[in-house]
Simulated scan of single mutants.
Amino acid sequence: MKRIVIIAVLFIYANIFANTGKLNLTKGMEKYRLPNGMTVVLKRDSSSPLVGLAVLYRVGFRNEQKGKSGLTHLLEHMMFKGTKRYGKGEIAKTLHSVGAEFNAFTSYDKTVYWEVLPSDSLELAMDIEADRMQNSLLDPKEFEKEKQVVLSELNMHEGNPMVKLRHAMYKKAFGDHPFAWDYGFIDEVKNASRDYVYNELYKKYYVPNNATVFVVGNYDAREVKKLINRYFGKLKRNPRFKQSKVKPIKWNLGETVRLKGVASENFGNILFKLPAANINDDDYIALSFLEWSNMLGGFYYWDTPDGGVGYLGFSKEPDYPAESLSDAFIKKNLADFKARVINRERMDYDSISSIMMSLVWLESKFGAEHYAELIKKMNALSSDKLIAVVHK
């Protein structure tokens, strides 16, 4: 039986770090944990004079409360607004002064801050990240100013017919579940309280025992470990911290949403109920292969701890997987698509940032150390298994 929840008339584009099939990705990788609970992932690559630093916090839309959507994204903005040591604007100014590229993003289950910069400036980036993990001010005046910036972003997005459709789809499909909230609702961000964001999000989730630090690039391993201990090892863990329990995505199946918008032609998306990220689930492996290999064109798999959502774009009329991907095609071409997944690292393993973000994505799902196991299971997929999953 096809588990379909929504047919919509405009294509929704979602960008996520999912295409990460790199055999060398975890070669030589080291992963360990500090006494304060922070996880460390190191990957040396001497092919570039640069180094990347990223800090992953396991907090995102799924951790927000009803009526308080969009606040993890607002907090992300505020993390650039200063600490006791780095005043307003000084974080960006300092990073720019050493030629760094830097940014941050918030998604359903994580918030990530990252920098790519010359190797001799790594200590500076560590100092900034460690400082703002526990000493960000969230100044009330700056909070109100930044709230207007986020509201401006939301208003701009709400003017986009595709975003309107996405919100309508999510509301119909997921009701009051956090998956439906996306980057938040305008009224709820407008009413956001600085004290709530500071105490219930920042102080609760921005703690070392809810964080993973990544260092990727050209560095001396012994020196990097000393720096990590110096800057991150001294941070105090939150002994009362407990990660949010799994919140199974609740689906309203069999629904349809239609909206009129400005477009050159009709486009749409079908949402499918799929399994959560689980490397021990054979269906998850097969579905991930379909996405990574692009065997099923237009298919995207948002695999979260709370369940999976599959997207399949179409134009004019929907084509279901079993209709657009024939059994004969799978049997004939499976080996070629496996080779595509396995060999794509030659094209993708091309920059410090892409390597680092791939590790961030893998670690956030089931642990970067399981990468080789994932590829092995994809390579062992039979055509019969793939056909069964497509029909399912």
Rank of each mutant, 00 (worst) to 15 (best):
1 M>D: 10
5 V>M: 15
5 V>K: 15
6 I>T: 10
7 I>L: 05
14 A>W: 15
16 I>E: 12
19 N>G: 14
23 L>V: 10
26 T>K: 06
29 M>A: 15
30 E>Q: 15
31 K>I: 13
32 Y>T: 07
32 Y>L: 10
32 Y>H: 13
34 L>R: 01
34 L>A: 01
44 R>D: 15
45 D>A: 09
45 D>C: 06
46 S>L: 08
47 S>P: 08
48 S>A: 09
51 V>T: 15
52 G>Y: 14
57 Y>P: 12
59 V>H: 05
62 R>I: 01
62 R>E: 00
62 R>D: 02
68 K>G: 06
69 S>T: 13
73 H>F: 02
78 M>E: 11
78 M>A: 05
78 M>S: 01
78 M>T: 02
80 F>R: 03
83 T>W: 11
83 T>R: 15
85 R>E: 13
89 G>H: 09
90 E>C: 02
92 A>W: 05
94 T>W: 03
95 L>P: 01
102 F>D: 08
104 A>S: 13
106 T>M: 05
111 T>V: 02
115 E>D: 06
116 V>A: 05
117 L>T: 04
118 P>A: 01
121 S>E: 15
121 S>V: 09
125 A>R: 02
125 A>S: 13
131 D>W: 06
132 R>M: 10
136 S>N: 02
139 D>A: 00
139 D>P: 06
143 F>H: 08
150 V>M: 00
151 L>H: 11
155 N>V: 06
157 H>P: 11
161 P>Y: 03
163 V>R: 13
164 K>W: 04
174 F>T: 03
176 D>V: 13
177 H>I: 08
183 Y>N: 13
183 Y>D: 14
183 Y>E: 15
186 I>Y: 07
193 S>L: 05
195 D>L: 14
198 Y>C: 04
204 K>L: 10
205 Y>V: 04
206 Y>H: 05
207 V>F: 07
208 P>W: 00
213 V>H: 10
219 Y>V: 03
222 R>C: 07
224 V>S: 12
225 K>V: 04
225 K>A: 03
226 K>C: 02
235 L>M: 06
237 R>G: 09
239 P>V: 12
250 K>R: 09
256 T>E: 14
256 T>L: 11
257 V>L: 10
264 S>G: 05
268 G>E: 12
272 F>E: 03
274 L>S: 02
274 L>I: 01
276 A>T: 09
277 A>F: 02
279 I>M: 01
280 N>I: 11
281 D>Y: 02
283 D>M: 04
284 Y>R: 08
288 S>R: 14
289 F>G: 02
300 Y>M: 10
301 Y>M: 01
303 D>F: 03
304 T>Y: 08
305 P>R: 13
306 D>Q: 06
311 Y>I: 11
314 F>Y: 05
318 P>E: 12
322 A>W: 10
325 L>F: 14
326 S>D: 08
328 A>G: 07
329 F>M: 04
330 I>V: 12
331 K>W: 00
332 K>L: 04
333 N>C: 07
336 D>Y: 09
338 K>Y: 07
339 A>R: 09
340 R>T: 15
344 R>G: 00
345 E>F: 04
346 R>M: 06
346 R>V: 07
352 I>V: 03
353 S>C: 03
356 M>T: 11
356 M>W: 10
358 S>Y: 00
360 V>R: 14
360 V>H: 01
361 W>F: 12
361 W>N: 14
362 L>S: 09
364 S>N: 10
366 F>G: 14
368 A>E: 07
370 H>W: 00
373 E>Y: 02
375 I>H: 02
384 D>S: 07
390 V>K: 12
392 K>C: 06
